[in-house]
């Protein structure tokens, strides 16, 4: 691969992720609207929101870590996208692999946590404490899934994982070979996206949207951008592990949108669980299903 193609991929991959992510946010809001028998926002609404937030006249900062936190939150995901292969573009996926990707995906959260910390608002700190607790909860089934997939395919290189699946057709998909792990992965996905019933760290009526409590203007705009990336990354990761990645862009996007639609639909049907309820649930069912799936995979 020449340097030019690589550079172009490195630029294109985050850009595509952002655009697809915008439509995912739109889908999220439209699904909510449909379930509540509303019309929902217009197509360009997510973009309007972001442009408006970046274009605010006063931008209220609480200090330099607040600023850097937002930079890290967006930048970390921009970097993560280049580790995530999409049809026709591998970026630097073979330089990092699955484990690295999982850890790079924690960088935005870390940046956000530090930024929120400097806001000196206890609502935000409580939100971060809950978000980290939630991470502890959903990461346990998630790493079981990651381990199972890496063991089954014998590699952590996402490019290889996708190639192996595509060679076998639908029968070769991770979901066909490891249905239990795929189910556990869905649970983890729900937690990872922070959607109801695991929305404990946003909790608008209780802790005033937690981490976002002091975010205004481009700070909130940065978080909106981050949300686009987050939805995209989670969806593409799941598709790469279980649904054979993308043969071409059409099928790829179909699969990704379908996967992301599941947690979104579930979200609007549930109330919010308490933190300890979430942990108990996450450490019980998905972990049991995941370990069972792992036992099948390994023997």
């Amino acid at each position: 691969m020449s340097i030019q193609t690589l550079l172009m991929e490195l630029v294109l991959m985050p850009l595509v992720a952002f655009v697809v992510g915008l439509f995912m946010v739109l889908m999220l809001r439209r699904i909510g609207a449909k379930l509540q028998r509303r019309v929902g926002p217009p197509v360009m609404q997510p973009l309007y929101d972001i442009v408006k937030l970046y274009g605010k006249k006063t931008q209220i900062s609480h200090g330099w870590m607040h600023d850097i936190g937002i930079v890290m939150a967006v930048g970390g995901y921009v970097a993560a996208e280049t580790l995530l292969p999409v049809p026709g573009m591998d970026g630097i996926a073979d330089k990092g692999g699955l484990v690295t990707l999982v850890y790079v995906m924690m960088i935005p959260s870390l940046g956000l946590a530090l930024g929120v910390g400097q806001c000196a608002n206890p609502n935000g700190s409580i939100g971060i404490a809950r978000a980290l607790t939630a991470m502890l909860a959903y990461d346990v089934p998630f790493v079981i899934v990651v381990f199972g997939v890496a063991w089954y395919f014998g590699t952590t290189n996402l490019v290889d994982i996708i190639a192996i699946q595509q060679a076998g057709g639908v029968a070769g998909w991770g979901a066909t070979a490891m249905p239990l792990l795929a189910i556990a992965g869905l649970f983890a996905l729900q937690g990872m996206l922070g959607k109801q019933p695991f929305e404990i760290y946003i909790a608008p009526a209780e802790i005033a949207t937690g981490p976002m409590v002091e975010m205004s203007g481009k700070y909130l705009g940065g978080l909106f951008v981050m949300q686009c990336f987050q939805l995209y990354t989670a969806g593409v990761l799941y598709v790469s592990l279980f649904l054979g990645g993308g043969e071409n862009w059409l099928f790829f996007l179909l699969k990704v949108f379908a996967v992301v639609a599941i947690p979104m639909t579930v979200a609007f049907l549930f109330p919010r669980y308490k933190t300890e309820q979430m942990i108990r649930l996450m450490w019980k069912w998905p972990v049991m299903i995941g370990l069972l799936g792992l036992a099948f995979v390994m023997h």
Partner: peptide, 22 residues
């Protein structure tokens, strides 16, 4: 805000804290 008139059609959303609101 809800299904009868649906403010979200116009891009109007409720927010929680003054920092986020217009």
């Amino acid at each position: 805000m809800t299904s009868r008139f649906d403010m979200e059609r116009l891009g109007i959303q409720p927010m929680v804290t003054p920092r986020q609101a217009d």
